[in-house]
Structures are given as structure tokens and as C-alpha cells.
Nucleic acid binder design. Structure first.
Length: 569
RNA sequence: AGCGGGGUAGGGCAGCCAGGUAGCCCGCGGGGCUCAUAACCCCGAGGUCGGUGGUUCAAAUCCACCCCCCGCUACCA
């Protein structure tokens, strides 16, 4: 048994997360954390709301609110949604907690004391009307190359050229359209180049990072690391701890990444063992795994390890980075402003959590972007979840219920077909585990569905509905194998669809909870003859044939009626 | 533009790192079954594996170039 910290990227709470955010970080991490627990590992699973930074400050200002008021409400709302999705966090917190703020300030001071922080004056565009310094992309103007009038300060979306804000013709503040002026300001920088060699070694010699993460990072390193500003002139954020930096705040990335540690610390405090977090984070044998989207790789594979090293405290460095590609929605990018996509609160109004968990993992963008379509959603719910899994379970349980009064019959000797099916389940235990270990959650789930498919084929081959008349002992054997395989199936399904797995456990009338079972008990057929099961009822319902025609209309209604925090209206 | 990843039957995906007559699910055509939620099972049709060239006895797999999609390019997070 080993110590694990499972980390899910912190959702930025300027809005309700959409399905892509869910599958990329929080949901994938939950599946993995649940799997580890079944394996008997010692797991702390953390995440939280990332609530600082310019976009939130601006979003709040637009609504005439204090940023804290905005994030207070959105945080509570999102936290509750994740609970409904069955995300089994040890601690889901936020970056505005006292624990986090103090931790970040102390941590950055250690980096400072160790000589990794220096200051530099730079010139930044400043909006005199809004009284904020403007990041490049918050300045718009005409592209000097293609004359596109809405080019951003970092890049023209029309011609794709990379730009400097000073190149824009007629530059304007994206919020109020005033002309930005250039002001000089002092900032505190993290001396990344100082760690270039150490980081190169860390990544090159890393035994677990996937090839794409390695290649990406080594390329970054090859081009040379640049110092990175740790401070911002924003009002909203954690006050920078450095001497002379009293009016600055901490750049949101240096704050959010440390949340993984501070959330563990807070968890320790909550359970009354305030020093427990050290036993995890300061132990080199603790495995930390980060579930993130592909855009986040450099922050987790380079900047975060660099910070951990610079602190000099001996924190355990990332053990694995499980980066997903992107989920698109009906062929387009999710877009809040254009209303493209489904947001996780709306999703729950439409279907229960397990339907989403199942379909999203089934579509998980593991090696390339994948596309969410309602057609595919409909197909996966109806043919995979319902027909393959739900129906297999229901056929076995209702057969036992009707023919044996719900009592598991006494099996005869297992024949070749019985043994072959049992063997498939035993093999699936290792097959699924191996895929999970390699972060191929989608393929792992597919293997689990295969067990149900094989189960259906097994039933057809054995035809207990005939045998119960001609050779009752054989029908009894089939049902004993069937009910035991369903027990294994429940455990295999637990990481993916925990609510339904628990329902199966209850239908089987087994003691305790499926969540507390052991992975190694998969393939162990220990339900004894004479065991009484509960009255079966179908686990899932199918989407109606007109679903695809009606889904947009349904969604419109959901959007009209949904109760979001007032700050988001 | 540079760097990274991807392009495999109508749809969704695996195989590629360790080359050996292309595999899974859905859909489609045919058959079977009737325990089960019109569910289940079996058989079949359907692909010159983005393009071109190369290495090799043999290339989806290795190499080169090209086309298309996605991401990153350090002050969005």
C-alpha cells in the first residue's frame, strides 16, 4: 500500500464548468482515485476553486460586484455540483481560504530566501479609466498585417499572426474601449533559468511521464527557460509576501498550483491531524498524479516542479501527469460567450450523474481531441450502458427472482463454457488495472463493458430458460456464475459509475458498500447458494427515440428554469 | 511562422513505441433466441489505414516531404 495524492486541475470560477472541464480534470481524477482506493491504496484526493486573476476581477467589475462575492457564490454552487456528480474529493476547497493564503505566502518567501526571486521594472499597458494593467490579450485593435479590426494584443485571430500590443493600430482596452497608456511597473520574477539543468534532468529521467509530456517539455527547455513574473498589479489576489511588494498580488498560477499542497494541509487540519500533510508531501515515495488538460502541461511539468525544488523543502515531485486532449461540442469549441456546449449544472437537469460519467469517460479525449455529439451520447447510453450492461444484469437477476424465488441456486460442476466466462472476468481484473495504471480510462471502461457483452453471449450459449426444464442443474450453475459475475462487474464499474454500482450491490443484497470492496475480489465467486437477492429492477432507462429531435428544445427549457447563483445572471 | 500531438470502413475508436495478410463498438443486410427494458446471440457486406516518395523479403506501424485538424509559443487560466 502506497501513499497517493490525486490532484485535479482547479476549475476557474468565473463561470460554471462545462463538460470538457469535467472530463479533463475532476471526473478523470475521481475515476482514478476510486480505482486506487479499491486497490487498497492510501489516497488523498484534492482540488478546489481557482478564484484569483484578472478575468475574475474584470467579470466582477462588469457586474458591479466585489470579486469575493462572485467567487463565494460560484464556489459553493460548483462544489455542490461536483458532489452531485459523485466526485469523491477528500477536500474540495478554494484559493481564498486562510490556510491557502498563508501557505502561498510562506512558500514564496522560501523561494525568495533561497535566492530564486529577483525584481525587474517593465513597461505595461495600463487602462486609465478602469485603473488596471492590461494583459496583452485584453487589448484589442486593428491587425497591422491583415487589417482585421478585432485583433487581440497577443495574436490576431483572423490571420493567426503573433503580435505585440504595441503593434496594434488604434489599440483599445477590451472592457471600456479607452486608449491604454504605457506605464512602468516593478515586478518580482521567478528565476526559472537557474533551474533549467535540474528540470531537464527531472524530465528526461522521469520514468512515468508520457512521451507527449516529455517531448513538449524538453522542447520548452531547449528553447531556454525565461524568468516568470510572480507578481501582478491586480487588486484581487493574494498579497505578495516579498519586502517592498506590499501593493502587489501573487500571479494566479503561482497561487493555484500550490493549492494542491494547501488543500492537503487543510484536509489534515479538518480531520484533526494537522501535520499529516507533511507525511505525504515531504515523502519522496508519495505518488502525486495530476489530471489536467493539454494546455496545462508546462505549468505542471515545469513550473510546479521548479517551485517545489526552489522551496528547498523536499516536496515530492510530480509522479505522473495525466493530460487529456480537448473535448469539442458538436464539432466546435465549447464557448461561454457563444453559448456552445453543455454546462455541468444543465447536464444534471437532463440526466443523472452516472449517465454523464459513463458517456464522458467513453468519449474521453485520451490521444486526440474527441467530439461530443448528442448522437453519440444517445448511442452510448442506449446500446452500451443500457443494453449491454443494464440488460445483462437484469436478465440474470430477474431469472433468479422468478425461477428460484430470489434465492441463489446451488451450482453443479462448472463446464468449459462456465469456466471460460469466469476466466474472462479474472483476466479482466488485470487487463482493466493495467489500462487504468496507464491512464487509459476510456479503454479500461471498454473492457468492463466487454465483460457484460461476454456475459450476454454466455447466457445465450447456456440458455438456462431451456435447461431449467431439461437439465435444471445446468441452469442453476449458469445462474450461480451469473450472479457472481455481476458482483465482480459491480466492483469493476464502481470507479466509473459509483451510484449505479452501489445500486447493483443493493440488488444483490450484499453487506456493506461497493465502495469499500477490494479490487482483488474481482473474479472471486463467493456468493453462496441460498443467498437471497432483492427484487430486481432495471438499472438504467433508455433515451426515447425522439431524443435527438427534442434535445435542443429540452435544453432551452432547462436553461430558462435553471437556478444559478444570482451573480452569474 | 516555430514546436508538439492527431488524421484508420457511414459514425465512434483500438492497433503504431518493440514492422509480418487491418481489429472493436454502433449502424446496415441476413439468420437464431424468447430469460431480459423491441433487449440478447451468431454470420455477412463495408477500409488502396490523409497524400507522395523512400528503407525493407514485408510498412497503418520506420524515414523524408506535402495537405488538413487541435494545442502551445511564456502577461488568459
Amino acid at each position: 500500500m502506497g501513499k497517493w495524492i490525486v490532484c485535479a486541475a482547479w476549475p476557474y470560477v468565473n463561470a460554471v464548468p462545462h463538460l470538457g472541464t469535467l472530463i479533463g480534470s475532476v471526473l478523470s481524477a475521481d475515476v482514478y482515485a476510486r480505482y486506487l482506493r479499491l486497490k487498497g491504496e492510501d489516497v488523498i484526493f484534492v482540488s478546489g476553486s481557482d478564484e484569483h486573476g484578472t478575468p475574475i476581477e474584470v467579470e466582477a467589475r462588469k457586474r458591479g460586484l466585489e470579486p469575493k462575492k462572485l467567487t463565494d457564490e460560484v464556489h459553493e454552487y460548483v462544489k455542490e455540483l461536483f458532489k452531485k456528480f459523485g466526485i469523491s474529493f477528500s477536500n474540495y476547497t478554494r484559493t481564498e481560504t486562510q490556510t491557502h493564503i498563508e501557505f502561498v505566502r510562506e512558500f514564496l518567501m522560501k523561494m525568495y530566501e533561497n535566492g530564486y526571486i529577483f525584481t525587474q521594472d517593465i513597461e505595461m499597458p495600463y487602462c486609465p479609466k478602469d485603473q488596471i494593467y492590461l494583459p496583452d490579450r485584453f487589448i484589442v485593435g486593428e491587425c497591422p498585417y491583415c487589417k482585421y479590426p478585432h485583433a487581440r494584443g497577443d495574436q490576431c485571430e483572423n490571420c493567426g499572426k503573433l503580435l505585440e500590443p504595441t503593434q496594434l493600430v488604434n489599440p483599445r482596452c477590451v472592457f471600456c474601449n479607452s486608449k491604454p497608456e504605457i506605464r512602468k511597473t516593478k515586478h518580482w520574477y521567478f528565476n526559472l533559468p537557474k533551474l533549467a539543468e535540474t528540470l531537464k534532468k527531472f524530465i528526461e529521467e522521469h520514468p512515468h511521464f508520457p512521451d507527449n509530456v516529455k517531448a513538449f517539455c524538453l522542447n520548452w527547455l531547449k528553447e531556454g527557460l525565461k524568468p516568470r513574473a510572480v507578481t501582478r498589479d491586480n487588486k484581487w489576489g493574494i498579497p505578495a509576501p516579498f519586502p517592498g511588494a506590499e501593493n502587489k498580488t501573487v500571479y494566479v498560477w503561482f497561487d493555484a498550483l500550490l493549492g494542491y499542497i494547501s488543500a492537503t494541509k487543510e484536509y489534515s487540519e479538518k480531520i484533526g491531524k494537522p501535520n499529516l500533510w507533511r507525511e505525504y508531501w515531504l515523502d519522496k515515495n508519495t505518488k502525486t498524479i495530476y489530471f489536467i488538460g493539454k494546455d496545462n502541461i508546462p505549468f505542471h511539468a515545469i513550473i510546479f516542479p521548479a517551485m517545489l525544488i526552489a522551496s528547498g523543502e523536499g516536496y515530492t515531485l510530480p509522479w505522473q501527469i495525466a493530460a487529456t486532449e480537448y473535448l469539442t461540442f458538436e464539432g466546435e469549441k465549447f464557448s461561454k460567450s457563444r453559448g456552445i456546449g453543455v454546462w455541468i449544472d444543465e447536464a444534471l437537469e437532463l440526466m443523472d450523474a452516472d449517465y454523464w460519467r459513463f458517456t464522458l469517460i467513453y468519449m474521453r479525449p485520451e490521444v486526440r481531441d474527441s467530439n461530443f455529439t448528442w448522437k453519440e451520447f444517445y448511442r452510448i447510453v442506449n446500446s452500451e450502458l443500457n443494453d449491454a450492461i443494464g440488460n445483462f444484469i437484469h436478465r440474470v437477476l430477474s431469472f433468479i427472482y422468478k425461477n428460484y424465488n430470489g434465492v441463489v441456486p446451488k451450482p453443479g460442476e462448472l463446464d468449459r463454457v462456465d469456466l471460460e466466462y469466469k476466466d474472462k472476468i479474472v483476466k479482466a481484473k488485470d487487463k482493466v488495472a493495467k489500462l487504468m495504471d496507464n491512464n487509459r480510462l476510456k479503454l479500461a471502461l471498454n473492457e468492463v463493458v466487454n465483460i457484460a457483452r461476454e456475459g450476454n453471449a454466455y447466457l445465450n450459449t447456456k440458455a438456462p430458460w431451456d435447461k431449467i426444464k431439461s437439465k435444471p442443474e445446468d441452469a442453476a450453475t449458469t445462474m450461480w456464475v451469473g450472479v457472481n459475475s455481476i458482483k465482480s462487474l459491480a466492483i469493476l464499474l464502481e470507479p466509473f459509475i459509483p451510484f449505479s454500482a452501489e445500486k447493483i450491490w443493493n440488488l444483490l443484497n450484499l453487506p456493506g458498500s461497493v465502495h469499500e470492496q477490494k479490487w482483488d475480489s474481482i473474479g472471486v465467486f463467493d456468493i453462496k447458494p441460498g443467498h437471497k437477492i432483492n427484487k430486481p429492477k432495471p438499472l438504467f432507462r433508455k433515451l426515447p427515440p425522439d431524443f435527438l429531435k427534442r434535445v435542443n428544445e429540452i435544453l432551452v427549457k432547462i436553461r430558462l428554469n435553471i437556478k444559478r447563483p444570482s451573480v452569474l445572471e
